[in-house]
Design a protein around this nucleic acid. Structure first.
Lengths: 144, 144
DNA sequence: ATAAATAAGATTAAAATAGTCCTATATAAT
DNA sequence: ATTATATAGGACTATTTTAATCTTATTTAT
């Protein structure tokens, strides 16, 4: 429940890895070898990240990926949004809300929008670099 | 992604409904009729809530369920925990973490534990009653 | 007894997630 | 030019989770 999909987990791990390297470009093969992730699956993940401006690709021999933003500017919410427009705790906050029978006098829609806004904020406040800095992570102040 | 399962959605709706009624006991049939939820599925949900001390059941004719705590004391985290021990953003924060290859030098485990703690806190700060009180919902201060 | 309610096990259906396979395209090095 | 190595992307399959249903048993007020 409320689990991040593997594709997001792989994305975060890969972005962390790229950030740690000195190389100009890091290949999918290198990442999958080091982190023991399926090359095929990770390839798909990298393509999504590339299409959504999180990383930039260079094709061909000696090709690979590099970060577009620095690790401390790259927020988890950006990574999540590369795969899905918004976090939707319940269906009636998303696009298929037309199907919701309760819509209009739905007692869930508004409060869930507020709660998911708070969750999104947590991911907005956290950068890829922060993940390696636990003290910083714990000190972030969230005020609503 | 990060969607609450339907069983939790049904649970919240049902608990809200029970809280609104004057009756001593509210039956699954009444709830499913009013909220247009599958009777069978909702029955299962009610059984889980009963087993986990969120509601109390009375069997037989005129039977039904009542809240154990008042709506303003019943927190969303309790409802979620009735269905699953903890929120686990990634596998390596849960019980099946033994399977995780990266464990021990996992760059995800600790930060994800912190993040899911923050998410749990949001659900801890929110009661069933709060869901109907948007101004209150928005004013909750979360400090870390 | 009967009717109306919860309890619970077993099964099935549907949807989302995860993973693979295959082919095309780009590019640096030889 | 050719080759080796990389990304790009479509199609497909497998697995897991979620959702729903079916059936039978038990409880209890009338």
């Amino acid at each position: 429940m409320l689990k991040l999909p593997k594709k997001v987990e792989y994305a975060i791990l890969a972005l962390q890895y790229i950030a740690e390297q000195d190389e100009f470009l890091v290949s999918t093969k290198e990442i999958s070898n080091h982190l023991k992730l399926s090359f095929e699956f990770l390839s798909k993940v990298m393509q999504v990240l590339n299409k959504n401006g999180i990383i930039q690709s260079q094709q061909g021999t000696k090709g690979g990926y590099k970060l577009v933003l620095q690790a401390n500017e790259l927020k988890l919410i950006d990574v999540i949004r590369a795969f899905e427009e918004n976090i939707n705790l319940v269906d009636c906050t998303g696009e298929n809300s037309i199907e919701c029978i309760r819509l209009d006098n739905c007692s869930l829609r508004k409060p869930m929008l507020i709660l998911q806004g708070k969750i999104e904020r947590i991911f907005y406040e956290t950068s890829i670099a922060d993940l390696s800095d636990h003290s910083k992570l714990l000190n972030i102040k969230l005020e609503y």
